[in-house]
């Protein structure tokens, strides 16, 4: 189908973005950064169109539904939300260095979706359990949460790298990174967005489960792992707001948090559970 062909090309656009961000960081030339942002924008718009097209194509097949119903579609949406949040942050902070850490996530998600043999890119009809108005709000809130945590992961890596470089770094890469204080603050703000979105995602999922599975909470592995992720980020927020943990500890916790996100997203598929339609 046309949409998945376009999406597989966009994988390379995001790789291009990553490449030029890297050039900017290594050579310290801002022109590369501008090219990289352009690549991101092209990828973002193209991907938005492809998602819309996929939606339209599903209606033409007579099985119309929002493109949020399986692993392929979720990966596509995940990489798109990451780039969306990244572009907003780049625009607000006027700093492109985060791009080198975040664009690989979008690239990898899209590459996995487009080129993994275990992932089916065909548009499939909705199984009865997914035929619900909650599908769209549940998927959108969850994936904005995941994307925010992905960006927080990037910021945490940046923070740790910046700190390793010492106070007066010599190489261009370290010099270009924002100060540790700015990274720490930004990370906190992104975690707040992610936490709010994850909370909404769990709530919409729970209300949906109440009408689909007969219980708002059944300790299904995906439910449980989303709760674990929620607890980890609740811990991040409490340790920061009440106990004043910042800096390295905060960065480590956010990395642990993102590992939980990844397990909630991918790892859970290896455990038995009710969310089985998200596997392939």
């Amino acid at each position: 189908m046309l949409n998945s062909t376009i999406l597989s090309y966009i994988t390379f656009v995001y790789f291009g973005a990553f490449f030029f961000y890297l050039c900017m960081m290594i050579m310290g030339k801002s022109a590369f950064g501008k090219v990289a942002t352009l690549f991101c924008l092209i990828g973002f718009v193209g991907q938005a169109l492809a998602i819309g097209l996929r939606w339209y194509e599903s209606y033409k097949l007579g099985i119309g539904h929002a493109p949020f119903s399986n692993m392929y579609e979720s990966l596509i949406f995940f990489s798109w939300t990451i780039i969306l949040l990244y572009l907003i942050i780049e625009w607000r902070t006027k700093n492109k260095t985060l791009g080198v850490f975040v664009s690989p996530l979008a690239f990898l998600a899209l590459a996995y979706a487009s080129f993994s043999p275990s992932i089916n890119s065909r548009i499939q009809p909705l199984v009865p359990a997914l035929k619900s108005n909650w599908l769209i709000s549940h998927v959108i809130t969850c994936f904005f949460g995941y994307a925010a945590f992905g960006i927080s992961f990037g910021l945490s890596l940046m923070y740790l790298i910046k700190r390793m470089g010492g106070d007066r770094p010599q190489n261009a890469f370290l010099k270009l990174l924002p100060t540790a204080g700015i990274l720490d603050d930004l990370n906190y703000q992104v975690v707040v967005i992610g936490f709010l979105m994850l909370t909404l995602g769990i709530i919409t999922g729970s209300v949906w489960a109440h009408s689909a599975w007969g219980s708002y909470w059944s300790w299904d592995p995906k439910e449980t792992w989303s709760l674990i992720t929620w607890l980890v980020y609740a811990l991040v927020l409490h340790s920061r707001m009440v106990r004043g943990w910042r800096g390295k500890r905060m960065a480590f916790l956010c990395i642990v948090g993102f590992c939980c996100v990844l397990f909630t997203y991918f790892g859970v598929n290896y455990l038995a559970g009710l969310h089985s339609y998200a596997k392939s």
Binding site: L231, V268, L271
Partner: peptide, 17 residues
């Protein structure tokens, strides 16, 4: 609170395996 959050998280992990 921090200790309890960690314990509940670990216990929940066990229950999924």
């Amino acid at each position: 609170t921090i200790v309890l959050l960690i314990l509940i998280a670990i216990a929940s992990v066990l229950g999924t395996f």
